[in-house]
Computed example of a mutant assay.
Amino acid sequence: MSLDACAALVQRGDPDRFAAVMAAPQSARARLLPLYALNLEVARAPWVSKEAMIAEMRLQWWRDVVAEPGPRAHEVAAPLHDLIQSARLPLDVLDRMIEARRWDIYSAPFEDQAALDAYLEDTGAGLMWLTACALGAPPEAGAAVRAYGWASALASYLRAIPELAQRGRIPLVDGRPEAVAELALRGLIRLEAARRAGVPRAQRPALLAGWQAEGLLKLAARDPAAVAEGRLQLSDFARRGRLLWQATTGLF
């Protein structure tokens, strides 16, 4: 299958990341799209059926794809296989990203804040590190990329809180406004840590997917009630302006 199939999938199912891909240099897009398509496939796997066993089987199928990345007749698996081989992506990071989605299958809450932190680390931070690796990131860039990815994942997660609650999940360990504001501040601290550490310019297209993170986290810290009420959104002007600024300056 072609990268066009991955692009179409991401465009339909994850328009924010698709916008980030389109803002990235053309040379980077072929390395970003298979991973964003994989993320979309595993993120939606827990929700395609009410039968937990079916969701478990879907996630296991993707774990098998990663563990034994032979050619498969699937629109995402084939380009992903090529990328895993050519970029020598860390298979353990891929596996943890998929395995973490098992939490989404069931309605049990996170055991504690550390469990939620680990979920964000394995999903969002792991994905951002994988995309940076696909662009040739050196190991020493890992801490900064993962910090930025964790904060970006938190911002997206907070935006999804109303939908998760509607689906019967208990998404936050502590949903009190003051606790939500504190969580958002932790995300902002990680963003600042990533900036201080720095990321090589060649890998910064991987960070474009987090272009809304700072604005969303600042809003959540200032107005934590916006999270539960579904008002955690940036204006179209702010969204487009931030993406354009980050893409043209290379800053994050």
Rank of each mutant, 00 (worst) to 15 (best):
A28R: 06
S49A: 12
Q60N: 11
R44F: 02
G70N: 07
A73P: 05
P71R: 14
V66D: 07
D64G: 14
P46L: 00
G70K: 07
W61K: 03
P34F: 10
R29M: 11
W47M: 00
A28T: 12
G70S: 08
A52F: 06
L40Q: 15
R72M: 11
E68A: 13
A24F: 05
E41P: 11
E68S: 07
R72A: 10
E41H: 11
L40T: 15
E75M: 12
A55V: 00
V65H: 02
A67Y: 00
W62I: 05
Q26S: 11
Q60T: 10
L59V: 02
L35W: 10
W61C: 05
N39I: 14
L33F: 03
N39L: 14
R29E: 09
V65E: 01
E75A: 14
A73G: 10
P25G: 04
E41Q: 15
G70A: 12
E51R: 15
P34H: 08
P69Y: 05
W62C: 04
M57Y: 01
N39C: 14
A43T: 15
A67N: 06
S27A: 14
R58T: 00
A43I: 05
S49C: 03
A45N: 02
A43H: 11
Y36V: 10
A24G: 09
Y36F: 15
H74M: 06
P25S: 06
A28F: 06
A30E: 13
V66N: 07
P34E: 07
A43Q: 11
R63A: 05
A67P: 01
L40K: 14
M53V: 11
A73L: 13
L38R: 15
P69G: 07
R31W: 01
L32R: 05
R63F: 00
L38W: 15
